[in-house]
C-alpha cells in the first residue's frame, strides 16, 4: 500500500510544489534574518563573515515564526486531501476492497504523514545546502573552531518534519469529518496558527500546543527536545486513531453529489 501510494506521491506536482515552497520560504527567512536581525549587508559580507556564521543564519531562519506557520500550509499540499479525494473519486473503492479497512486507513495515514514530513525535510535540507555553499566560503578562518550548532539545526529539521506530519494528519481528519477535500487545506493553518496565538496571547500554560515551541522549544519541556518528539508522537497516534474511527463511517456514508451527477447524466 505504501509503495503504491509513494509512486503516486512522487509523480504528483503537489509534493514537489510543497518541497519547493519550503525551500523558498526558508531562503527568504534566512535572507531577512541576515539583513535584519543579524544586521549584515551583501557589501559587508563580501569583506568576510565571522566563523560559524552560516550556522547562526540557519538557526535564526528556522526560528522565524512565519516560516513555521508557512509549514502548516506546505504540509497539507502533498497528500492530506487524499482520503477525501479517494471517497469522492471512487479510488477508495478500488483500494479498500483489495485490503481491509484497518490496513487501508492506517496505510493512508502513514502515506499522508510521511509525504508531508518528507516534503518539509527535503525543502529544508536543500535550502541548508544552498546556504552553506553560499556562506561558508565567505567565512574567515578562526583561531579556534567555534562550537558547532549543527546538531541543533538537525534537531529543528527533524521536529519540522514531525510537525508537518501532524499538520497533514489534522487536515486529513478534518476532510473526513467535514466530508470535503477543502478542509484538508484550510483546517491545519486555521487550527495550529490559531492555537499559536492563543498560547502566546491568552493561555501560556498551553505552550505544548504552540507550533513555534515544537520547532524551537524555549519553555520547560520535560526531556527537552526528546520531550517534544515524544509529545508529537502521542499526537500522531491520537490523530491516526481518530482518522480510523471517523474514516470508516465517512466512507460508508453516501456521496450525494456524485449520485446526483449520475442521475443528471442519465437524464
Amino acid at each position: 500500500m505504501l509503495r503504491a501510494d509513494f509512486q503516486r506521491i512522487f509523480s504528483s506536482l503537489r509534493f514537489w510544489a510543497a518541497a519547493a515552497g519550503v525551500f523558498l520560504a526558508t531562503g527568504i527567512a534566512a535572507y531577512l534574518q541576515f539583513t535584519g536581525e543579524l544586521g549584515y549587508t551583501l557589501e559587508l559580507a563580501a569583506s568576510g563573515l565571522p566563523p560559524g556564521f552560516h550556522q547562526e543564519v540557519l538557526l535564526a531562519a528556522l526560528r522565524t515564526p512565519w516560516l513555521i506557520q508557512a509549514l502548516t500550509l506546505a504540509a497539507t499540499l502533498p497528500f492530506a486531501s487524499s482520503l477525501a479525494e479517494d471517497r469522492r473519486d471512487g479510488r477508495g473503492v478500488l483500494l479498500a476492497t483489495r485490503t481491509l479497512w484497518r490496513k487501508y486507513l492506517c496505510g493512508r495515514c502513514a502515506s499522508i504523514a510521511l509525504s508531508a514530513a518528507l516534503a518539509a525535510i527535503l525543502g529544508l535540507l536543500l535550502c541548508i545546502g544552498v546556504l552553506v555553499l553560499i556562506l561558508l566560503p565567505m567565512e574567515l578562518a578562526a583561531q579556534e573552531a567555534p562550537a558547532s550548532q549543527m546538531p541543533a539545526v538537525w534537531g529543528m529539521v527533524l521536529r519540522a518534519g514531525t510537525s508537518c506530519a501532524i499538520f497533514a494528519l489534522t487536515g486529513a481528519l478534518g476532510s473526513m469529518a467535514l466530508r470535503g477535500a477543502w478542509a484538508a487545506y484550510v483546517l491545519p493553518p486555521a487550527l495550529w496558527i490559531g492555537l499559536h496565538f492563543l498560547c502566546i496571547r491568552a493561555v501560556p500554560a498551553l505552550f505544548c500546543l504552540d507550533i513555534v515551541q515544537w520547532i524551537q522549544p524555549v519553555d520547560v519541556w520535560l526531556g527537552g527536545s526528546w520531550g517534544v518528539l515524544l509529545f508529537q508522537g502521542e499526537l500522531l497516534a491520537i490523530l491516526v486513531l481518530a482518522i480510523y474511527l471517523v474514516g470508516k463511517g465517512a466512507f460508508l456514508a453516501p456521496v450525494r453529489r456524485a449520485s446526483h451527477a449520475r442521475r443528471e447524466e442519465a437524464a
Binding site: 503504491a4 509523480s11 479517494d86 473519486d89 471512487g90 479510488r91 478500488l94 483500494l95 456524485a258
Partner: peptide, 24 residues
C-alpha cells in the same frame, strides 16, 4: 468492482494504474 467515478489516476498510464493497484 467497477463503479463510477472509476478511481483511476489520470497522470498514470493504464499499466501503471493496474500495477499500482496490483501491488496491494
Amino acid at each position: 468492482i467497477m463503479t463510477r467515478p472509476d478511481g483511476l489516476i489520470g497522470a498514470f498510464t493504464a499499466l501503471d494504474n493496474l500495477m499500482n493497484l496490483a501491488r496491494i
